[in-house]
Design a protein around this nucleic acid. Sequence first.
DNA 1: TTGTCTGCAAACACTTTGCACTTTT
DNA 2: AAAAGTGCAAAGTGTTTGCAGACAA
Lengths: 168, 168
Amino acid sequence: MPTSVDFSLGSVAVALTPRERFAEFLQARGKRITRQRQAIVDHVASRHEHFDAEQLLAELRQSRAGAGASRPTVYRTLTEMVEAGLLKKMVLAGRSVYEHDYGYPQHDHLHCTVCEKLIEFSSADVEAICAAVAARHRFAARGHRLIVSGICAECRSTRSRSRHQDRV
Amino acid sequence: MPTSVDFSLGSVAVALTPRERFAEFLQARGKRITRQRQAIVDHVASRHEHFDAEQLLAELRQSRAGAGASRPTVYRTLTEMVEAGLLKKMVLAGRSVYEHDYGYPQHDHLHCTVCEKLIEFSSADVEAICAAVAARHRFAARGHRLIVSGICAECRSTRSRSRHQDRV
DNA sequence: TTGTCTGCAAACACTTTGCACTTTT
DNA sequence: AAAAGTGCAAAGTGTTTGCAGACAA
């Protein structure tokens, strides 16, 4: 799992930090750059794992004062970040899970149904297949999601009982 | 989209009707074959499209008297049918969508985000990729789900407004 | 100032559960 | 008769919304 994306990597393309990109998005829509939205983008940008709304909410509350946001605001902002192309949303076992999508290579997941962990992988072949199938159906593909579910190596080696990995 | 699965196709393998298979499953678990469970399997077996719990509930209520079941029972029975291998469950935009899984070939979907329609397709390549990736991660794959989202041919040709296809 | 945003509480959609009564076995 | 199933109403989740006050621009 990539630990960080270098936004000042020399070239021009992805020169904006997530925070800047979000600000740009907001301005373009006449939306405002508030303390809460900043806190959320920054916090999300600082972590590179998958997370859900409640998790994020809790983390924001734990961090130093002033950096928090209410539940509705967290949900609203996550939606905006998806629209801004910063995050990607995925529905798993009832709840929505988010992951970085800005400056991140396309990838898919192995989903362990025991510990709920997500393992990333990428395959150019999957891309090709999707494109081919879409074309065949005159379908305008916007993206795809491939999730292989099963049991991860750790959970397999554990003699049942006890889900030893916190979720996501 | 297949319109029907022939359960008496000559060979031996898939010789049971969904109803029979479900009865077998229930008996094996010491569960009972009730009027409601029968009504539900039969109704589900008679349709071959994707559906969700509320839809099924409504349809059961419309059919001739006596064939209905309460909401909790519908939910409980759908869960059992998934366990029995008759149905496959998929979470889409908040609700759970079910599709046949018994005597049905493995397939994936194109999901139109405008009219919510699901178009089936199958690809042996996808299978192969999943198997390879799983092996590489020492992951015990139980199955996969590939959903290509985008806009279907009909919706593309319609000048925006009006989602002209009832969902699923 | 003006119009957007926030937070609260309430509303939501979907799904599950506790429990007394009904049914299958 | 015994055990499991059903339906009702109520409780849960996760997420969204109406609105008055707070706040960027």
